[in-house]
């Protein structure tokens, strides 16, 4: 009975802890969003973060998309050949990239790169009292550090994903025409003909949500980092893991919404 009580208590404590963490994240997110719309605005910080999050993530997103598009073309060809549907390769590569793989894989790659970087930077600032210093210099850290990162990531991710989608389709095109024997013009025509505006907008909307999640998790865990190098390390891990899991969960919810 005693062991059963202990087990129940432990489960209860974990559930309460989980709920309080969710509550803290929601409060943090609401506070951050409110700071995005209230002055003062830090334009230079926003631009700098846009470059850090968006521009410098282009290589990793581009390479991911290129190889994914190429592999996708091979897989669809291999599967389609079983029921004589090889011709669907261009359209399925395009739709698959734009609706699903571009935003999700791009989101996961950026989560690894950006969430960790934000969490480590803010965590180090917390540990070395730089966040306290901001407060004493009459600057709200939520406004100066968090709001620009959230806004920059939310704007940059759709741009990154749009570029990634294009490169992914290019990967499929290169394999399709170079290895699978598709005619170049026919491949491009099939790619464009079967694509709808909704495919593109749903993918970009997902990307914006994923961008918000990536920056939110990085900022939340970094801002509330524990003491010392271990605290910063833990914040970094938590940021990447929680951002990745939330991206996958949000992807399902958004796919249902756009279905």
């Amino acid at each position: 009975m005693n062991t059963f009580n202990k087990l129940l208590r432990s489960i209860g404590a974990s559930v309460l802890d989980f709920c309080s963490t969710i509550g803290r994240i929601v409060i943090f997110a609401c506070s951050s969003i409110s700071h995005i719309f209230r002055p003062p605005f830090y334009g230079k910080e926003l631009f700098s973060q846009f470059m850090q999050i968006g521009f410098y993530s282009l290589p990793v997103v581009g390479l991911t998309a290129l190889f994914t598009g190429a592999a996708l073309a091979l897989q669809i060809y291999s599967g389609g050949a079983r029921f004589s549907a090889e011709s669907v390769v261009p359209s399925i590569v395009a739709i698959g990239m734009v609706r699903e793989l571009g935003p999700v894989l791009g989101g996961l790659m950026v989560a690894g790169r950006v969430s960790s970087s934000i969490a480590a930077e803010l965590g180090t600032m917390r540990v070395t009292e730089q966040i306290d210093a901001l407060v004493t210099l009459s600057t709200n850290p939520m406004k100066y550090l968090v709001a620009p990162r959230l806004l920059a990531a939310t704007i940059a991710m759709p741009v990154l994903v749009a570029v990634g989608d294009t490169i992914g389709i290019l990967g499929g095109y290169l394999v399709g025409t170079g290895r699978l024997g598709f005619n170049s013009n026919n491949y491009l025509k099939n790619t464009v003909d079967f694509m709808e505006l909704g495919d593109v907008t749903s993918g970009l909307a997902k990307a914006a949500v994923f961008g918000f999640i990536i920056a939110l998790m990085g900022c939340y865990h970094g801002y509330n980092s524990g003491r010392g190098a271990q605290g910063v390390g833990k914040a970094t891990i938590n940021a990447v893991v929680s951002a990745s899991v939330m991206i996958l969960a949000a992807n399902y919810i958004l796919t249902e919404a756009f279905f």
Binding site: M125, T128, E129, Q130, D132, A133, T136
Partner: peptide, 11 residues
């Protein structure tokens, strides 16, 4: 004005 223990300069 505040001088922090490890200066807390913005890197």
């Amino acid at each position: 004005g505040m001088l922090f223990q490890n200066a807390a300069l913005f890197d």
